[in-house]
Amino acid sequence: MTVIQGENLTKSYGKTLALDNLTFQIEENKLTGLIGRNGAGKTTLLKLIAGYLKPSRGEINVFSHNPFDSLQVSANIIFIDNHMAFPTAFSLDDILTEVAHYYQNWNAKLAHGLFDYFSFNPKQRHGSLSKGNQSTFNMIIGLAARCPLTIFDEPTSGMDSAVRKDFYRALLKDYLEYPRTIILSSHLLSEVEDILEDILLLRDGTKCLHQSVLELKEYALGLKGPKQTVLERLKGQEILHTEEFAQGSLYAVIKNQGLTSQQFLKHEDLELLPVSLEDLCIYLTGNAKGGIDHVFKQ
């Protein structure tokens, strides 16, 4: 079942185009990563899904409803970001109790378990938490709410790496226990790629690609060797990225089109390297200006 369907989705703020003609689908009970550089339109897309924003053009449907200002959709979504606000009258303890009334799948045991694990002070106020602790607390709410559609927008900002690790583990475990549609936006792809099923990669408000992580891992190959040999080999291949790293040596990333590694390995001077997802996404979304090195060459 399709949970989210975007059709030619466009959103502009004044003259700035945040999303441009985006068409995509997100299936039920998938854990999708929304990846993109800063300003690629991740948050805008998530807010469109959550019904906070109205598309300038195009259509978005969540659970077959227009999410904008829809109570039905809102009741089935939780949107976790670092702008979440809670009344100052509520201690953290109160918030966990009060929020529970809104979500029928609320798992109080999980909420309190995580709350204790991260050693929160029940009497503290949300506003007085550090940025990282706020993110951690919001994450607890996002997990415990067990909403049919759970959206995490940069959930780990401010968390230290130990907490981030714990969070991803908690997210995966709860997802396994209670499968639901989860969208996770992040720019730390290396940390989340293992737990993701799909990746939706945005570039300047457009869809760069939307694939399963398994496919994406085999999407590209890295090739290292003498410049001449590499260039020869690259004929007829789709090149995603090239980089000269030493005199006469070239590192190239090409699209993997059914070439088995054996064929390459037979050639002595060439070395085959895996391309990490994170690098791949950078190559795919990078600008055509030749990277940061280009600036220093001038």
Binding site: T88, A89, S91, D94
Partner: peptide, 13 residues
């Protein structure tokens, strides 16, 4: 109110 509120739970209020 905002100062007081940090010491007071809504129940006390």
């Amino acid at each position: 109110g905002t100062i007081v509120v940090t010491f007071m739970s809504w129940r006390k209020s």
